[in-house]
């Protein structure tokens, strides 16, 4: 039965709800992926430790040499308090700045992300030219807040999808309850409860599947709008190109998940109407 008896009252509403929800989910997913990419790029910051000569003069020379290196945005000596904070974070136990010996550390931030092998090699060459022996460490993410942002967008995507499925469930249940006359007539004419619920469930599943399929197309068109609203410059083509395999999976699964949610909702609504009609007064 491809023409669902729930369609007239529900189809357009479902298309709109699913499309909006999916567009937000895909948009958030894209923003999350972009944020994750930037977080990975942001690892291109380095910490340099001056080994020899062990003097403040060598530290100053190293800072000057690094600051003049191509691609370096800033090169600054790390004060004891910051060093103590980082050591505490890395070591897992508290370290006081006053307890630290002179570490002669320099924080280097690049203007643009650089190659993870070539950039340290370049910095080493500059230091050697300046007559300073030093070791270079990858400093890790420059912005520790970025992974949290990535998690947040993932949670938002999952939350939107969950809310969407709940909305579909309740919309289908309401539509089925609105078809109370049908459930009443069926009960009066001797349809069994199981057969009635199955028919309503099938009707809900069909309409939501078709609505979900239509909504996926709308969502793919609308998702760039969501990302643009978040301040990103993106076209439809780049949006499609930036879709991850998870995004594609979500888009493909959307009609099926919508179908399942609406089927359960329609069954629940029909059960309410059928039981009211079939009750022996």
């Amino acid at each position: 039965m491809l023409v669902s008896f729930l369609r007239p009252s529900l189809f357009l509403s479902l298309v709109i709800v699913i499309a909006v929800g999916l567009a937000v989910a895909l948009g958030a997913s894209g923003l999350g992926a972009r944020s994750a990419g930037e977080a990975a790029k942001a690892a291109s910051a380095y910490t340099v430790r001056v080994l020899a000569p062990a003097s403040e003069d060598a530290l100053a020379k190293a800072v000057a040499a690094l600051a003049a290196a191509p691609g370096v945005r800033t090169a600054q000596p790390m004060d004891a308090a910051r060093a103590a904070g980082l050591l505490t974070r890395w070591g897992g136990r508290p370290i006081k700045a006053a307890d630290l010996p002179p570490l002669r550390l320099i924080e280097v931030r690049l203007a643009e992300p650089g190659d993870s092998v070539l950039t340290p090699a370049l910095l080493s060459e500059r230091l050697r030219t300046a007559g300073v022996a030093a070791e270079i460490f990858d400093a890790g993410p420059a912005d520790p807040g970025r992974p949290a942002a990535v998690r947040l967008t993932t949670i938002a995507s999952v939350g939107v999808c969950g809310a969407l499925l709940l909305a579909l469930y309740f919309a289908a249940a309401a539509a089925a309850r609105a078809e109370r006359t049908r459930a009443t007539l069926w009960a009066d004419l001797g349809a069994t409860r199981a057969a009635t619920l199955a028919a309503f469930g099938r009707a809900g599943a069909e309409i939501a599947f078709l609505a979900g399929a239509a909504a996926v197309i709308l969502a793919l068109v609308a998702a760039p709008g969501v990302r643009m609203a978040a301040g990103e410059t993106i076209s439809f083509a780049t949006m499609i190109a930036s879709l991850s395999s998870w995004d594609v999976l979500i888009a493909l699964a959307a009609p099926l998940l919508a179908s399942a949610a609406a089927s359960f909702g329609a069954r629940a609504g029909a059960a309410f109407a059928f039981d009211a009609a079939d009750r022996l007064g």
Binding site: T181, L185, A191, T192, R193
Partner: peptide, 22 residues
Amino acid sequence: NASRAGLKRRIGYAAQEPQFLE
């Protein structure tokens, strides 16, 4: 309930104000 549904199918009822799927 299932037997009652079966029994209902053997009863034809024409109401005073009948309901239809309009």
